[in-house]
Design a protein around this nucleic acid. Sequence first.
DNA 1: ACAAGTGTAAAATGATCATTTTACACTTCA
DNA 2: TGAAGTGTAAAATGATCATTTTACACTTGT
Lengths: 174, 174
Amino acid sequence: MNLSTKLITAAERLFDRHGYTATGMDRLIQAAGMSSRTLYKHAGSKAQLMADVLGARDRRFMARLEVGSVDALFAALEDWVRVEGTRGCLFLRALAETGGDTPEIAEAVAAHKAAFSERIAQVVAADLGRENPRLAEQVLVLFEGATHAGIYRGAEAVSAAREAAAVLLEGARR
Amino acid sequence: MNLSTKLITAAERLFDRHGYTATGMDRLIQAAGMSSRTLYKHAGSKAQLMADVLGARDRRFMARLEVGSVDALFAALEDWVRVEGTRGCLFLRALAETGGDTPEIAEAVAAHKAAFSERIAQVVAADLGRENPRLAEQVLVLFEGATHAGIYRGAEAVSAAREAAAVLLEGARR
DNA sequence: ACAAGTGTAAAATGATCATTTTACACTTCA
DNA sequence: TGAAGTGTAAAATGATCATTTTACACTTGT
């Protein structure tokens, strides 16, 4: 594993567990096992590092959502939660923590959420055989809801969302 | 308006717009229009101040959810979003920012989410005429989803959730 | 052999952090 | 009158913040 990957991996873990602002560069440096000079050569700044982390997370997350049905979408979320835990959406958390005032971060979040919305719409269309923006919006809300309710309701929230999506899809089919 | 109320109001605004960690005591002191000595006499610490803010928000939010139908629940959310904007759930954000490591904050969040979950279950039971924990979980997920998807999808997300809840409720009725 | 590139360790930068302290003014009530 | 309570303004505390700099070691390709 090269230095950049090691840095991004360590940073993602710390930002996710303790928050962006609360994570100091000292801890990042120590966790990544490199000097501050090297870290800044690779990342440029703390904000840019967070943007890089979000980029990596976007790739990893979106890869899991390469599925052909709405049910598989929620199955993928169940897997994600099982593997990565439930601490909410890192993108929305980063945006909220910075009040939307950090351009690199705001742009990374906007790009991810646009891709995510588009993906949901595609999967809904593939599953249903035709486009249905309203249903897609509902599925997106269920997905986002499962992600956040899961923080305090656990895996139950995800399976409830999965079931609700199935009901709504069935309703749209008839 | 007394000093404590003024402090809580100013603090809620700043924490909500800029995040808990990123908001310094200097800004709080300036916004509340009082000395640091007075602020610490009233709040005790920054973490306790955030806990007080969450307590006030819980009262204000839960008061809006004193309704008798699931549809009114989402109507209340639409009102809330119109008045207070869409920056996600301050409770979950505070919890994530502190990594769950600040007891005062973790307790305030747990108390609120317990009350919130209970309220949803009550409203679902009242609307349906009988208890239905599974449907309540789905409504909770839709509510939480609308709150968070609304950040980037706007009011559309809330009305989609409202519609979805109506469909699920109708399904449970038959 | 030597220049360029990439790395480390550690100190310095100057700002900002949450919190406490010092010194003083105003009201209230006995 | 005078003590207690509540407030302000401003400085001091000591830690921690993100970032830069200085000085040095190791590899690599020519």
